[in-house]
Deep mutational scan, measured.
Amino acid sequence: NNDALSPAIRRLLAEHNLDASAIKGTGVGGRLTREDVEKHLAKA
């Protein structure tokens, strides 16, 4: 659900052409954090 993404996370996802649903969020309520996105990028 993109409504739960902060603007910074949306921008980071867009810059790397990532789909938020492909990344498991570890923030409050399962929200994506910058660390989640960076860890996903490091794996790729």
Rank of each mutant, 00 (worst) to 15 (best):
A4C: 07
A42C: 06
K24R: 13
G27D: 03
I23S: 00
N2D: 14
G29Q: 08
G27V: 02
G30P: 01
E35M: 12
G29S: 08
E38M: 15
A20D: 04
A4P: 13
R31N: 07
S6N: 07
G30Q: 05
I9D: 04
I9H: 04
G27P: 01
L32Q: 01
R11K: 12
L13K: 00
I23W: 04
G29R: 08
E15A: 15
N2I: 14
I9R: 02
R34L: 15
R10S: 06
P7D: 15
S6K: 04
A14D: 12
R10P: 01
A42E: 13
D19Q: 11
G30A: 05
K39H: 11
K24E: 10
V28Q: 12
P7H: 11
A8I: 11
R10Q: 09
N2W: 02
L18T: 05
R11V: 06
A8T: 11
A22M: 15
L41H: 05
G25W: 02
G29A: 10
D36S: 01
A8W: 09
A44R: 12
N1A: 12
L12P: 01
V28M: 12
G30D: 04
A44G: 11
D19M: 10
P7R: 10
I9N: 03
L13Y: 02
L5W: 04
I9S: 02
N2A: 11
A44I: 15
D3E: 13
E35Q: 13
S21A: 12
G29I: 03
N2F: 04
G27F: 03
A8N: 08
N2M: 12
L13P: 00
G27Q: 02
A4F: 15
A20M: 08
T26K: 03
G25S: 05
K24W: 06
E15V: 14
L5A: 06
N2Q: 13
A44L: 15
A8P: 04
L18K: 01
L13C: 04
G29E: 07
S21G: 10
N1M: 10
K39C: 05
E15I: 15
A4V: 12
L13V: 03
L32A: 02
L13G: 00
L13T: 00
I23N: 00
L12Y: 06
R31D: 04
A42F: 10
L18F: 04
L5S: 04
R10G: 05
E35D: 10
K39I: 10
I23F: 03
T33E: 03
N17F: 07
K24T: 11
A4G: 13
N2Y: 04
